[in-house]
Simulated assay, not measured.
Amino acid sequence: MSAADPIVPVILSGGSGTRLWPMSRPELPKQLLALTAAETMLQLTAQRTVAGEQFAAPIVVANARHADVVETQLAEVGASAQALILEPAGRNTAPAIALAAIAAGAGAAPLLVMPSDHVILDVAAFHAAIARALPLVRDGWLVTFGIAPDAPETGYGYIKVGAELAEGVHRVDRFVEKPPREAAEAMLASGDHAWNGGIFLFRADKYLAALQSFAPTMLAAVEAAMTRAVRDAARIWPDAEAFAASPADSIDYAVMEKAERVAVVPVSMGWSDLGSWDALHAISDCDAAGNACRGDVVAIETTNCMVRADTGKRIALVGVEDLIVVASGDDILILPRGRSQDVKKIIEAMKG
């Protein structure tokens, strides 16, 4: 692989984004919404790796029901996918990335795997981290990007950063599951752990070889699904029956925790996975009273609230504090700040 080989961005856009209900719904999940800027999360992700000398056009893996809106949103920011892989069903990240690796040619092309719904405020720092990782990637290493932690978060997995392999690149000592509070505090204090941000860089062939070693049933199912795929211009529909035979597993479990040559690049780049309304409040511009409001909102004697109103909706608040209030469609969400992870309880209750 030559130094000039462009990196192929792989944008994973299959998530349902239920934690940001009621704005995020299966028909229009959070990656397809404009939550932090005028652009949608998908558009912001595509703009981090503009096609040119360093990056090829992206491969996007998405839910089949979102094909039109994905293509439209990419076109709106001057991007287009070299392949739009439309999953017949969600099988988690490991099979989705395998689909992209095969679509990229299954060779030595480096793949930059990015979720479509993350925030990265310092793109220059992200690009610098990619540059530090590339020499090891060319040599066959599987690289993940470790987010510099600033709090003892219990909702993220962690990576123990091991010996330095090259400047700014370290061996992964171990992956740590989402920890209890005491363990998270200890890892933060130790200074040798990073959050697992779910962003990866590796050669397509090396990833597929790792699947062959550690998840051969998954690889066989994905290969069969791509062999029988229906193609129309950039769109690729993997065969549904073959893909359904794949185990559902994350890349962390299927590959990264088992492979030998796994490295981490610690980086501070203003990252958030935007996994809750509280996370959105934390990165939002707030007024002098600590309120983050968007839409037609009237807030009187109100402090530290997160308020969102769809077009055509008005929300008025008087004398309250530390609330999350969201009006979207026919639904209204109200809950205390700090409890936005409990949206999943609402989703489950509505199913019942």
Rank of each mutant, 00 (worst) to 15 (best):
105 G>R: 14
22 P>Q: 12
61 V>P: 09
84 L>I: 03
73 Q>G: 08
328 S>Y: 04
69 V>D: 08
11 I>Y: 04
32 L>Q: 08
73 Q>I: 11
14 G>R: 05
92 N>L: 07
195 W>C: 07
53 E>Q: 15
347 I>P: 08
285 D>I: 10
264 V>N: 05
3 A>P: 08
262 V>H: 01
310 D>R: 09
231 R>F: 10
335 L>M: 07
157 G>W: 01
332 I>T: 06
75 A>L: 13
16 S>Y: 13
259 A>W: 10
121 L>S: 11
308 R>V: 04
8 V>T: 00
153 E>K: 05
15 G>R: 05
11 I>H: 01
148 A>H: 13
160 K>C: 03
67 A>Q: 02
140 G>N: 08
11 I>T: 00
43 Q>N: 12
16 S>L: 14
222 V>L: 09
46 A>V: 11
216 P>F: 07
237 W>P: 02
208 L>N: 00
291 N>H: 09
32 L>V: 06
332 I>M: 13
34 A>N: 12
202 F>K: 05
116 S>D: 10
102 I>L: 15
131 A>P: 11
112 L>I: 11
302 T>A: 05
86 L>T: 00
176 V>A: 13
19 R>Q: 10
170 H>W: 05
150 D>Q: 13
177 E>V: 08
66 H>D: 04
65 R>N: 14
340 S>Y: 00
286 C>T: 14
169 V>D: 03
145 F>T: 06
280 L>G: 04
211 L>E: 04
252 D>P: 02
138 R>I: 13
303 T>E: 08
237 W>C: 03
331 D>K: 06
40 T>P: 00
347 I>C: 11
145 F>V: 15
108 A>P: 13
